[in-house]
Design a protein around this nucleic acid. Sequence first.
DNA 1: CTTATTGCTACAGTTAGTGTAGCGCAAGAG
DNA 2: CTCTTGCGCTACACTAACTGTAGCAATAAG
Lengths: 111, 111
Amino acid sequence: MAKQPGLPVRGSTTGRPIMVLFDALGQKWSMRILWELRDGPLTFRELRERCDDVSPTLLNTRMKMLKELGLTETTEQGYGLTEWGADLGKQLARLDDWANKWALTMYDAQP
Amino acid sequence: MAKQPGLPVRGSTTGRPIMVLFDALGQKWSMRILWELRDGPLTFRELRERCDDVSPTLLNTRMKMLKELGLTETTEQGYGLTEWGADLGKQLARLDDWANKWALTMYDAQP
DNA sequence: CTTATTGCTACAGTTAGTGTAGCGCAAGAG
DNA sequence: CTCTTGCGCTACACTAACTGTAGCAATAAG
């Protein structure tokens, strides 16, 4: 089933962009994959290894979805982020900053 | 099973804050719940309704998790965000802005 | 008492994700 | 040419995550 802003997703019929994004990022490994690709393209097997050996079945379906959403693409160096994917990656980097402060003040856990 | 920065989560043994966050937000309805609480506390049944009638079973387990993470709390008005939860909500609002631009330039889909 | 509304639990059924094995293909070595 | 090596990916059986409906115990009002 296709997936893009404007079309309904799990748990929301409106196709409102943020709902599409919540649906996509709310699936296991989605954010992690974008995160691991932040420093440049990786091969299927490399990416899989970085994601704690996620099952290839899932990695493949997830990559198909992210590709459909225009966030990743396949280059000659392997799987990489598109411009939009990289942009979203920056948003995730902000989340990283946030998470570190959060952990620090709430649990004294180090990044 | 407890959940907090510093302790291992699904797919990462390090307990690195961003991984804890990815694990938590990567579960279905997590982001949506934080999103729906952004304008103030809601009762269990109200919150459930706003989340497209998510099953009460899941809503309850999710609320327990979010509470454990210090993102939500139960007030006299019902379920609400903590300061950290509200802060994270602001990050999600940034994602909303991002998603709207994304949808607009990629698919001409309106927010 | 009855009635209504609340937060929440029980439980069976469906969907999503896991883990291992290995296929088909392309490139390099002998 | 054959043999190996490493690649992206698929098959498939298993487990975990989520769904949907019914309804319980508690509280409050009539």
